[in-house]
């Protein structure tokens, strides 16, 4: 036995003929004996009729020429190359949505994670080792990076004596790590 609250929650779907036969029969039986729910059903019917009337009356009087004229001008004008390219790529069902972008980003991130996690030989292929020198405001700095072992070694060297332009931030130690 459905309560009045449950019946009221189902009335819209019942009016739309979207309830299964059992639920629809329960609603119908309840309405025969419940004035409050019957009143709610009438309000819903009134609302649906008013909605249709209001929306349709506001849209009356749109001339075909006003729509077609603009569409025809646009389709006669050749689309730029990027538009044609996009039309081929885009499936045309809906514009790009933030939710889609986030989903794609999440899938790509997961893919990258599993690639690195379970295919170490793939990431090993991309390992690199190099040494570079940097000009750090007068101090000499050299970096050694090895992505395979994820190691970075930093050398700091005393500047030559004839160069007195030393940054305040340069460490005093001759070597460091």
């Amino acid at each position: 036995m459905m309560s009045c609250g449950e019946i009221k929650d189902s009335l819209g779907a019942w009016l739309d003929q979207e309830l299964d036969a059992t639920a629809a029969a329960q609603v119908r039986a309840h309405l025969e004996g419940c004035a409050a729910c019957l009143k709610e059903k009438e309000r819903l019917e009134f609302l649906d009729a008013a909605l249709k009337r209001v929306l349709e009356s506001r849209s009356a009087g749109v001339a075909f020429e006003s729509i077609w004229g603009a569409v025809e001008r646009s389709i006669r004008k050749p689309a730029p190359w990027y538009q044609r390219l996009w039309d081929r790529i885009d499936i045309g069902l809906s514009p790009l949505r933030p939710a889609w972008v986030l989903s794609v980003a999440a899938v790509l991130s997961l893919g990258a994670f599993f690639l690195v996690r379970y295919l170490p030989e793939w990431s090993a292929r991309n390992s690199f080792t190099f040494v570079e020198s940097l000009d750090a405001h007068g101090a000499n700095v050299a970096l050694f990076r090895d992505s395979g072992s994820r190691t970075t070694v930093i050398w700091l060297f005393e500047p030559p004596e004839d160069q007195d332009e030393v940054s305040e931030e340069a460490p005093a130690a001759s070597t460091g790590f």
Binding site: S59, S66, I67, I75, D87
Partner: peptide, 16 residues
Amino acid sequence: DAMDIVQDTFLRVYRK
């Protein structure tokens, strides 16, 4: 706004 969107809709329909 509705006019613009309807025109855009049919333009997209034509292109696709």
